[in-house]
Design a protein around this nucleic acid. Structure first.
Length: 414
RNA sequence: GGAGGAGUGCAAGAGCGGUUGAAUUGGCUUGUCUCGAAAACAAGUGUGCGUGUUUUACGUACCGAGGGUUCGAAUCCCUCCUCCUCCGCCA
């Protein structure tokens, strides 16, 4: 969520940015609730003050009947006002949670097509066999049996494809560790507080991309970003220990309902995939450079694997609620002759941090919200697509990218 | 899953209806002392919200979470969560 103080002082901007992100929120109504809430709170506190004074006066002696009656009267008034406060607070909270983060000045306005290309790597060759056809021909993937045991868009990876996935994972984790990130495994389910705090839809929402567990306050994670965001919830971190860099590995579960019209062939959009995710906690003044650093790691990593790509600065309408700025790295599909999303990194500024109460204690003792950032190192299913499209040999094999050779028992070809 | 115990400030740990925002000890910060350090001594040391002459101040809330009882709750009652011990089960 945003800081109410910030919304009070910048209501025009917040309202405009929300619209440009494609969110419909009534800032004036929110500020109205804010005013009412404040007014009632002041009344409640004045009454509490009276009550405390009364109690104070009767500390040494037993209260007389008159004082007890006064106390009863105060109690009833306070209870009554507290109920009012509670109901207004509820509406206020709902509205406040709906306000999306603002975004950076250099974020292009508009929708998916308005995202701006920033940089490009490698050639835009064509003529590769489609990954799904190829993998089926090698008996590397089985969607039919995936559907049998779970449902459509579930799959088994088999043989060398599964080994290749493990190799990419190991390579990526080691790559990112060398950049100063601490490797962690994470819970694959999170409670509602954590899920919503990280910016994911709650169970009550009907357009959620998440899987929920019956009779439990648990959501299957769609990304390790969720547990990693919650890792430092309700903590105050000393300034000198920031920035903190973590890299998590986890499966990602996504319903992907209502993805009609989106590219869904093969492994590109599935209900479950594995991902190596970078995460950072830092001070507000560090977050821009940390964002560039994470983007730089993604580029370096994918260059080292030898996959052509471009980086785009995501347009406002595609940013989502938490992101202040987002880069996507899109690999060049040699089979289809288009760029497609491979990784993504976002600066969420203090939006997630405020939800989960994650703060920094400055060297001078001051306390404020810190900033959080996340970025994909490798999303394994899509990584397989990219490699299989770009490393097909003339005799129908897959040449192993040089950097992955040590992770495949020194095999050069699969 | 069953039985029992416990959750208090940075940490350990007291308090079990009013004098407790919270004893005591340790940690940390500052000061005295010292060439410096240690030791000793002294003082300080939470967070949110609101008000204000917005650096000193005042009010209010917070003792796992949420409800309740009461004139008054860290203290009593209820529900939930977490941790520990024992039993069961199990990779």
């Amino acid at each position: 969520m945003l800081d109410i103080q910030f919304i009070r002082n910048n209501s025009q901007l917040v309202s405009e940015r929300a619209k440009q992100k494609g969110y419909d929120v009534d800032i004036d109504q929110l500020l109205g609730f804010d005013e009412q809430k404040k007014k009632i709170l002041q009344q409640v506190e004045a009454l509490r003050q009276q009550r405390n004074a009364l109690v104070d006066a009767t500390k040494k002696t037993k209260p007389n009947p008159d004082q007890i009656n006064q106390g009863r009267d105060l109690r009833d008034k306070i209870t009554n006002l507290e109920h009012q406060l509670e109901s207004i607070s509820r509406e206020y909270d709902i509205l406040l949670m709906k306000v999306p983060n603002v975004f950076a000045d250099d974020v292009p306005l508009g929708g998916e097509k308005d995202s701006l290309e920033i940089t490009k790597f490698g050639a835009q060759d064509t003529g590769a066999q489609d990954h799904l056809d190829y993998m089926i021909s090698r008996d590397w993937v089985d969607f039919e049996r995936g559907a049998k045991v779970a449902g459509s868009k579930f799959y088994f990876l088999k043989g060398d494809a599964a080994l290749l996935e493990e190799a990419i994972k190991q390579y990526a984790i080691n790559f990112v560790i060398k950049k100063g990130f601490l490797f962690m495994t994470v819970p694959h389910m999170v409670n509602t507080k954590t899920a919503v705090g990280a910016g994911f839809a709650p169970k009550t929402s009907d357009d959620s991309n998440e899987y929920f567990l019956e009779n439990e306050d648990l959501t299957l994670i769609g990304t390790a970003e969720a547990p990693l965001t919650g890792y430092h919830a309700d903590e105050i971190i000393p300034e000198k220990s920031l920035p903190l860099f973590y890299v998590g590995y986890s499966p990602c579960y996504r319903k992907e309902a209502g993805t009609y019209g989106k590219h869904t062939r093969g492994l590109f959009r599935v209900h479950q995939f594995n991902k190596v995710e970078m995460y950072a906690f830092c001070t507000p003044e560090q977050s821009q450079s940390v964002h560039e650093k994470i983007r730089g790691i993604e580029e370096e990593l994918w260059q080292s694997i030898g996959i052509p790509y471009r980086v785009i600065n995501i347009a406002s309408g595609d940013l989502g609620a938490p992101a202040f700025k987002k880069y996507d790295l899109e690999y060049w599909s040699k089979a289809d002759g288009v760029y497609r999303e491979l990784t993504s990194c976002s600066n969420c500024t203090d939006f997630q941090a405020r939800n989960l109460n994650i703060r920094v204690r400055r060297d001078n003792g001051q306390i404020e919200m810190l900033h959080t950032l996340n970025g994909t190192a490798v999303a394994l299913a899509r990584s397989l697509i990219a490699i299989i499209e770009h490393y097909q040999t003339d005799d129908g094999k897959i040449r192993v990218p040089d950097v992955l050779v040590p992770y495949l028992g020194n095999r050069q070809v699969l």
